[in-house]
Computed example of a mutant assay.
Amino acid sequence: MHKKMRDSKFKDDRHCSRAMLRLLSVLLFLSLLANGVLTYMFFVDFQPVISKNNRQPNYCSDLKEKWFKSKGRFYVFSTDTMDWNSSRERCQALGGDLVIVNDKEEEVFLAKHVGDINDFYWIGLTDSQTEGVWLWVDNTPLNNNHSWEYPPDDWKVENPIGEDCVILKKKTKWGDVSCLRREKRICEIPCSNPQ
Rank of each mutant, 00 (worst) to 15 (best):
D45Q: 13
R18G: 12
C16Y: 12
L38E: 12
L38A: 09
V49R: 04
F74Q: 02
R18H: 10
L33Y: 05
V49K: 02
P48A: 01
S78N: 04
W67N: 01
F46C: 04
N35A: 13
F42Y: 13
N54F: 14
S31F: 12
K52I: 05
D62T: 09
P57V: 02
S51L: 10
C60I: 02
S17K: 15
K64S: 07
A19Y: 05
K11N: 11
R14M: 11
I50P: 00
C60D: 01
K66F: 11
F74G: 02
W67R: 07
S61W: 13
S70G: 01
K66T: 10
M41T: 09
P57L: 01
F46Y: 09
M20P: 00
G72N: 10
F77R: 06
D12T: 00
S70M: 09
K9D: 13
V26D: 03
V49L: 05
N54M: 10
K69M: 08
R14C: 05
N35K: 14
L32E: 09
Q56W: 11
E65R: 00
Q47W: 06
R55S: 13
L33R: 01
R22K: 15
P48V: 04
F46P: 00
E65K: 00
Q47A: 12
L32F: 10
F10K: 06
D13I: 13
D12F: 01
D62A: 14
V37S: 08
M41N: 03
Y40T: 09
M41C: 15
W67E: 00
Y75D: 05
L33W: 03
F46N: 09
I50Q: 08
F68V: 11
L30H: 10
R73S: 10
D12H: 06
L23G: 01
A19R: 13
S51W: 07
L63S: 03
F10G: 00
A19P: 00
V37M: 14
P48N: 01
T79L: 08
K52Y: 08
C60T: 06
D62V: 13
W67D: 01
A34E: 04
F77T: 05
F29R: 01
N54K: 14
R18Y: 10
R22Y: 14
L24A: 13
K71I: 04
L38Q: 07
S70V: 02
G36C: 04
V76A: 10
E65S: 04
F10P: 00
F68H: 14
K71M: 00
K52N: 10
L23N: 06
F68M: 11
P48R: 00
M41G: 01
A19Q: 12
Q47S: 13
L28F: 09
F77I: 05
N35G: 15
V37W: 15
T79H: 10
F74I: 01
V44H: 11
P57M: 00
D45E: 11
V76E: 03
L63C: 12
N53S: 12
K52V: 03
S17C: 08
L32S: 07
L21A: 13
L63T: 11
R22D: 15
S61N: 08
Y59W: 09
S70Q: 08
S17V: 09
K64Q: 12
L33I: 12
K69T: 07
K64E: 08
K9A: 15
C60A: 05
F74R: 02
Y40D: 07
F77V: 06
R14T: 05
